[in-house]
Design a protein around this nucleic acid. Structure first.
Length: 724
DNA sequence: GTAAAAGAAGGC
DNA sequence: CCTTCTTTTACT
């Protein structure tokens, strides 16, 4: 009997030791089932024969080992251990989040086989004439003559034909073991590169086999994807694997097709839409080396790879790379760590790099690769500020804006209107007394969704019918306050009756397939108006749009979040990248009531690059990230006083233990009450990363013995992206 | 996090 | 003295 240490998926910052009965072999990274209180849990073996084991007579034996070989590789264990420390999240929960749900539940790892179909002997020898009357079957039969087909490559239209062929015993199901994909032999035909692109590709290719982070800064249309593709090609020729991380909304069929069409190797996608079985299949294909390229959202970073040769983080500035609940990791930052462990290059790509990455590049930690011209030779769109205070405004659109929309449509092009507020109106108000329909549980107004005939709270998800009377004075004169996409769509239609208006937001695309439908209608072309939220700014490419209107840029100008200017500059630049086509330069109209605002002027005249460098000096002067490290404690409770008191206890501890750490708080969260809970924050700034983390460990350890800690919910966000 | 034990509050 | 709800504690 020996003792092993197991990481268990419980929110406890401690490890648990168990007895390993003689004769049972396990390794670090293997799953085991163990008794835990009255239940049985699946845990990960973390240490064999720990030196400081728990009293041996109090140990229970494990129930059963679940793996013959580790499910987590050594590199992954190191990465996850680092991440658990860095983000101060319980190790067991971090480890378990890195394996597919089916493995988490203790299901056995399929023996590395995938289902395929191949012709039987009868099938090989059967004559074409026999299938003449069944064209679907004939087509499938002909396809199978080229070789076996994987079960997941069979389309739903082919299923009936397959069933028929199986019945006739012309086809049989076989289990094919996952094997490393065959290395690419034929050179793929890439596009001709610009000088910038060629330099970038050669730098990345030369970094093969060693750790080297790159920041690929390329204006939209400069051909970043082509750089990825051509950097990948030599790796595929060596049978290496590539991981491409993309923002949640950026994983479109077009992105996938771009990679799949170029190389004759297996390209897999990893995203939240997969079923548990699909996820396990994908996980295994990455782990066995049978997948060559995996394109996925942030959690793909924790996939196991047999021979990882390169990591690409596309749109590295995108906030969706940071997990916003539970284990709050940043996939971009951990991608750097992973590349260091795997000894491979990592490419962060963006038209609008985050200030963090730009800072790293300027400090020489990342090699900066710049693509400064558009590959198509196409002109950059022009930006124009529209002053909302100096001219008549109709439905939130200035006269000049309306004129330019009309002009663009008449020329046969498309217009995109960007408004980051869904619903009909963000509030419903009483004209007599000024009362606003509030959410009962949040400190916010409810959004009027006219077509659903209800009020929705966008913060807690609650809804109620639209009131007929004012909740305060009883008046029936209730009017919408402000404008959402639903309203803009309704107002544009009568204004431009000859052109279709398409709306793209979470509400209009809720029905399955409706997004694809809308995208189809847009790419089919013809002049039309496209209204939408940030779905428009990311991922999709609309080649016929030559005019983009940002209906309201002012929201971000006076935000308390120090990242708001950066995010607005990124949005403007990203949206601008959607405008214009080969021979028609695009135009972006920024509607503002404060057109003289310094930041708008700077973006307008000098572009994102200049804005970003200026913003960095500002961050340096104000001692904000990336010049200082930030950690954010959040606490919430139904009682208003508790979170503030708890955070105040932290403050007192910091003042004695680490007086050099600067604090802001306890302050109320921007949305002070959400879903009935009062929310408070404490911001901790430090010039020393290690000093800050040491302090955080001390704070967490100390707080565990405070009675208050059990009376509220708290969380720690390291390097927060969203301060709300 | 779950589950059970311990404690507090209320009914008769 | 019993039930029911809330709080505390253990979990290897």
């Amino acid at each position: 009997m020996s003792v092993i240490r197991i990481a268990l998926p419980v929110p406890l910052r401690q490890s648990f030791d168990y007895l390993l009965p003689a004769g049972i072999e396990v390794q670090v990274g293997c799953r085991v089932r163990v008794p835990f209180g009255k239940r049985a849990l699946v845990g990960i073996v973390w240490q064999l024969q720990p030196a400081d084991a728990f009293a041996e007579d109090a140990l229970k034996p494990i129930i059963e080992p679940l793996d013959a070989a580790p499910v987590l590789s050594e590199h992954l264990c190191q990465l996850l251990s680092f991440a658990a420390d860095y983000y101060h999240h319980p190790l067991g929960e971090v480890l378990i989040s890195a394996i597919p749900a089916l493995l988490r539940e203790g299901k056995p790892l399929p023996t590395g086989q995938s289902l395929s179909y191949q012709l039987t002997q009868a099938g090989e020898t059967t004559a074409e004439a026999d299938l003449k009357r069944a064209p679907k079957q004939l087509a499938l039969w002909q396809q199978l003559q080229q070789g076996a087909l994987a079960a997941d490559s069979i389309t739903s239209e082919q299923r009936p034909a397959l069933r028929a062929l199986l019945q006739k015993q012309l086809v049989t199901a076989i289990e094919v073991p996952f094997a490393p994909y065959p290395a690419l032999t034929a050179a793929s035909a890439g596009l001709k590169l610009t000088t910038d692109q060629a330099l970038a590709v050669s730098a990345i290719v030369q970094a093969q086999g060693r750790f080297q982070p790159f920041l690929l800064e390329g204006i939209t249309g400069s051909g970043k994807t082509e750089v990825y593709l051509q950097s990948i090609a030599p790796l595929l020729a060596q049978g290496q694997q590539v991981l491409v991380l993309v923002p949640e909304i950026g994983l479109t069929p077009q992105t996938l097709a771009r990679f799949a069409d170029r190389f004759a190797v297996p390209v897999l996608s990893w995203h939240s839409g997969l079923t548990d079985t699909e996820r396990l299949g994908c996980w295994q294909q990455a782990a066995t080396g049978s997948a060559a390229i995996v394109i996925g959202t942030r959690s793909a970073l924790f996939l196991r790879f047999a021979r990882l040769g390169l990591i690409v983080v596309d749109e590295e500035h995108d906030a969706s790379l940071k997990q916003q609940d539970g284990f709050r990791y940043h996939a971009r930052d951990l991608a750097i760590k992973r590349a260091a462990l795997e000894q491979c290059p990592v490419v962060l790509g963006s038209a609008t790099p985050s200030l963090e990455s730009l800072h790293n590049a300027l400090q020489g930690r990342f090699q900066l690769l710049t693509l400064s011209s558009r590959a198509s030779g196409q002109q950059l769109p022009t930006l124009e500020l529209i002053n909302l205070q100096q001219q008549p405004v109709q439905f939130g659109l200035a006269n000049t804006t309306i004129q330019q929309i009309k002009h663009t449509l008449q020329q046969g092009f498309q217009v995109m209107l960007f408004l980051n507020r869904r619903g009909f109106a963000p509030a419903l108000s009483c004209q007599e007394c000024g009362w606003v329909a509030d959410c009962q549980r949040c400190d916010a107004s409810m959004t009027w969704h006219k077509s659903d005939r209800q009020l929705n709270c966008h913060h807690c998800g609650s809804s109620r019918p639209v009131p007929r009377q004012c909740g305060h004075c009883g008046s029936t004169r209730l009017v919408p306050l402000g404008q959402g996409t639903e309203q803009l769509e309704a107002q544009l239609q009568p204004m431009f009756p000859d052109y279709p208006v398409v709306r793209l937001d979470r509400d209009s695309t809720r029905r399955k397939g409706s997004l694809a439908e809308a995208l189809h209608q847009i790419t089919q072309g013809g002049p039309q108006l496209i209204v939408g939220t940030q779905m428009l700014a990311k991922g999709h490419h609309f080649p016929q749009v030559t005019l983009v209107v940002i209906v309201d840029v002012d929201g971000a100008l006076f935000s308390s979040d120090f990242r708001a200017p950066e995010q607005l500059a990124q949005l403007i630049t990203q949206v601008a990248g959607r405008a214009g086509r080969a021979r028609h330069a695009g135009k972006v109209l920024l509607q503002s009531r404060y057109p003289d605002h310094g930041m708008l002027q700077d973006i307008l005249h000098n572009g994102y690059d200049s804005f970003a460098r200026l913003a960095l000096t500002e961050r340096q002067q104000t001692l904000l990230p990336p010049y200082q490290f930030l950690a954010l404690f959040r606490a919430e409770s139904h009682q208003d006083e508790l979170p503030r008191q708890w955070l105040q206890q932290l403050v007192e501890l910091v003042q004695t233990e680490a007086p050099e750490v600067q604090l802001l708080g306890p302050i109320r969260a921007p949305l002070e009450r959400k879903a009935g809970k009062y929310r408070w924050q404490l911001h901790c700034y430090s010039a020393s990363r290690s000093g800050l983390h040491q302090l955080l460990n001390q704070l967490i350890a100390a707080s565990q013995s405070w009675p208050l800690t059990r009376k509220l919910r708290w969380q720690l966000d390291v390097d927060p992206v969203d301060l709300s």
